[in-house]
Nucleic acid binder design. Structure first.
Lengths: 189, 189
DNA sequence: ATGTTATATTCAATAATATGAATATGTCAA
DNA sequence: TTGACATATTCATATTATTGAATATAACAT
């Protein structure tokens, strides 16, 4: 369900083709939904078809000289109303599923260096992700007080990303230090 | 895939029936996998069947006087080895999918009070969750330095939970303050 | 007795996601 | 001209996840 609304929310701000959308739903694409909702191109095209059928979207075929033709989608009034309703609805808390924590929880089954490697890799990934967010902040959100309404909400999602990654990083630090901690004297003897 | 290993990792520590497992995979169950991997009972029973077929688990039927009979599962050597291999493997970063952020990103489409209600509900939920984690910490992890190897890893997953919820909470605070901030003088006129 | 709750499990349908393959047009560089 | 990219979309299949329904035993309260 959410994917369709995520698509609507992107299209309501900017008309786009399926191909354009696939890029915005990529987790590593700059400044787009991909940061908090990912989808494959196959998913997106299927969903676009459904939404058009329901009349929530309308499409316009655009001939191009130097590219294959494309279909540009835009949100209808009906679609926009459904989007607004969905946003207002209460959402149930998403199912938690974290593979790393499942593995870590059973970490006593394998040797410690293997676990440490894993944690350090995660640390790096979160550092990189945080760096991206902070660059976006520097480039586009220097003065949060003066943002347009539209950008205020973008800013809040960016802030969440920063807090999220920071949380992971401080945990990674603590976890690594904890596991590298020398064994207590009593247990050594 | 992960679910099967999550099941193995629980069973390797304690033999259990399908019914026992369903409780451990509940997100609100105290001190269990449910905190980082949830699954419904139907999923669990199906997975148990598959794992038994593959010989990674073995089951023993236990007659009970005051209850329906049950099947107690335990992990075979084969299963244990596969579990260890899986833990050691590198995991790909999980797909990001956060419904709240999708909604918030399009928050300019609805009125601000509706968004604030949403944020405050989330704040409450995260507060409650954090309180649970902190209680577990107080009750079972007062002296992290003296924990058994097994419990050291439990402790680390608990720590992650605490950092995660703390990150959400500080963000909720900032986001709410930001949206409640009085409109700038220029934009008012 | 009747209804509710807890234990214990199975089957079926549907929805969502992931993966692989295929097709078509056009640019650009070796 | 061959190969590698980038644009643009479709179809098929497989795996997971969600939801609903069903069955059975037994405790416990009204």
């Amino acid at each position: 369900m959410s994917l369709s609304f995520a698509i609507l929310s992107v299209l309501v701000a900017n008309h786009a083709s399926g191909y354009d959308l696939t890029k915005r739903f990529n987790p590593s694409a700059e400044g787009s939904v991909g940061f908090f909702w990912t989808a494959s191109f196959q998913q997106i095209y299927r969903e676009l078809g459904r939404l058009e059928e329901k009349g929530w979207l309308q499409a316009q075929t655009v001939q191009q000289d130097n590219r294959p033709d494309k279909r540009i989608y835009s949100v209808t009034e009906l679609g926009k109303q459904h989007l607004r309703d969905w946003i207002t609805e209460a959402e149930k808390s998403p199912p938690v599923r974290d593979e790393l924590l499942v593995k870590l929880n059973a970490g006593y089954l394998v040797d410690r260096p293997a676990i440490l490697v894993k944690l350090k890799m995660h640390q790096q990934q979160h550092q990189q992700r945080l760096a991206i967010y902070e660059e976006i902040e520097r480039n586009h959100f220097q003065n949060p007080e003066t943002l347009s309404e539209f950008l205020q909400f973008s800013y809040l999602t960016l802030l969440m990303g920063i807090h999220y990654e920071t949380g992971w990083l401080t945990w990674c630090d603590r976890a690594i230090r904890f596991l590298e901690m020398p064994v207590q004297e009593e247990t050594k003897r």
